[in-house]
Design a protein around this nucleic acid. Structure first.
Lengths: 193, 193
DNA sequence: ACAATAACAGACAGGTCTGTATATTTGAGC
DNA sequence: GCTCAAATATACAGACCTGTCTGTTATTGT
């Protein structure tokens, strides 16, 4: 007979499946029925854990932020061994990500587009996430330059946001090199001045 | 009695209405029924001019590219009078746009997100449009710096893409100043080297 | 062993979606 | 005045959507 699921953690299975489908096809293109089918879960189980699709979307965004943190933590840790600065390691990790199969850009940018409503909880969470991400980038630059002198951080953050959308549209990681070189020049000029 | 429409150009009325609704709410959130209602047009008229919603989307993207060109042409022409360079005028126009009511970012970026399918004709058109837009930016920099020396153009293009998404997410035009200053520094450093 | 909880299956309501079919009305040129 | 094309109104098919309801089956703690 068919085996039951190992962990039996239904909630986790829903989150992972929804995250994968939402990211791949978009929030509106994926219906509840498809999520429960691919997660192999009953519809009532989903609605018990997540009272509505909007709340599921919000939970997926929170889940994904943790995944992103873990990915950058691991990928940068690898690259830092053979690279001159944490900033270089960051751009190497970014390139890894943009070249990974199924890459479709930043899930938070995409959610902001699909959740057109500025009052949607997901929209608000995206804004908060981007603040945290900018803080993360600022920290990287400070560790590469010395504390308190990361004046280029906001501009580099814009470069990063831009290179993510652009590499999706171009279907190529080429722009990653452009962004990295520009960012390195920015901090270099910052040091001189 | 109810007045008939002046121009009677049904196709144009459909395009303008669809453009407005698609931009405001998203491609998938707006249905055919809403478009025909707000355009005050019969459903059969829409399907006679545009055989499917996908073809309507593509037509709207083409229409919007012309509108964008006209907007930047006019706005930059105004700003150039009292500004030192075409590049500064470009960023001033960008800021005007990002502060206009209903601003929801770049319709082409947004379309790329919603049309998850990389083989959708709209997706391909977005890619081509972004090539043309980068050429446009390169031209602006060359006219500010002298021909052939716009090495910073690709990086500035990434800054622009990034500042558009970011100003939507932040709900503020603040990042525009960051992007403009960074771009001006880039071309300045280009001149010295 | 037994009660309580969690997950299951599957039908259903009520709405929306794209696209089609049918039949009628308007308007411009000749 | 007549013709022909364009635009109209309206109903419909068939699929999909979110969310609810009912009832059954595992699983788990005590």
């Amino acid at each position: 007979m068919e085996k039951k699921h190992a962990t039996s953690d239904v909630r986790q299975r829903i989150l992972e499946t929804a995250d994968r489908l939402f990211y791949q096809h978009g929030l509106r293109a994926v219906g509840i029925d498809r999520i429960i089918a691919e997660a192999d879960v009953a519809k009532m189980s989903l609605y018990k854990h997540f009272p509505s699709k909007d709340e599921l979307i919000l939970a997926v965004l929170k889940y994904r932020e943790v995944q992103i943190q873990e990915f950058f933590g691991a990928a940068m840790h690898q690259h830092e061994k053979r690279m001159k600065s944490k900033l270089r390691a960051f751009f190497a990790a970014l390139k890894d990500w943009s070249m990974s199969p199924g890459f479709r850009g930043c899930a938070f940018q995409n959610a902001r587009v699909e959740l057109a409503d500025p009052n949607h909880p997901g929209t608000q969470f995206v804004r908060e996430h981007k603040q945290r991400f900018q803080t993360f980038i600022t920290g990287i630059i400070e560790e590469s330059l010395g504390k308190g002198s990361a004046k280029a951080a906001p501009a580099i953050n814009l470069l990063v946001e831009g290179v993510v959308v652009t590499s999706v549209i171009e279907g190529s990681p080429h722009a990653l090199d452009v962004a990295r070189d520009a960012a390195l020049k920015m901090v270099e000029n910052e040091k001189i001045v």
